[in-house]
Design a binder for these strands. Structure first.
Lengths: 93, 93
DNA sequence: TAGTTATTTAGAATTTTTTCTAAATAACTT
DNA sequence: AAGTTATTTAGAAAAAATTCTAAATAACTA
């Protein structure tokens, strides 16, 4: 894990757009790629970064690879930010 | 503003450490620098990135420049993440 | 005013990131 | 088995980020 990887993954606009697409549900690499004006190789690179950051996970089916949002890491990041923001008021309630 | 700048700023461990230091209260550039094994020029570079991302602001006093945490942008990021995480349940309550 | 202290800016070197093309896998279909 | 489709991996080129040294500002102090 590691916040560096996570924030780095979130820093790229293409990768954030991919995550937003996946909010609606799982998509294959090809379906994700069709939303962008880039080669499949580049999309695969971005998916790799998101996967390494644990922001998505894949499930293989037929000759497709489907990607899905992994929200658990998103929660960890939110916790870190909330810690930063203010002595964590949530923990007191 | 812009999430790219914000996440990029948060992606670097030195910059995250600076933000954590500033949680305790404002510090001068020199005081911040003394926590790291880097030149003042490099610290200044990182502070510039944090400033551009609106994660900190500065106030000048004597011949010091003090840096302070700006939590408002942190909240915006948290909102974006919470949107991503789940159709935003918070908005329904 | 001259010198000192705090910080930034400029420029260069190094590393990392992003993107492409071409080739390699992997799994299906005929 | 051979061909097709979906995706990744490798390698290279280009762009961006990180760090340094040296020089420039800015504001104080004697």
């Amino acid at each position: 894990m590691g916040f560096a990887e996570t924030f780095k993954a979130l820093a790229d606009p293409v990768r954030r757009e991919i995550l937003i697409l996946l909010k609606q549900g799982r998509l294959s690499a090809g379906e994700i790629g069709s939303h962008f004006d880039m080669t499949g190789a580049t999309i695969s690179y971005h998916l790799g970064i998101l996967k390494k950051a644990d922001l998505v996970f894949e499930t293989r089916e037929k000759n497709f690879i489907y990607y899905e949002l992994n929200t658990s890491v998103v929660e960890e990041v939110m916790l870190w930010l909330s810690e930063l923001k203010g002595g964590n008021e949530d923990a007191e309630k």
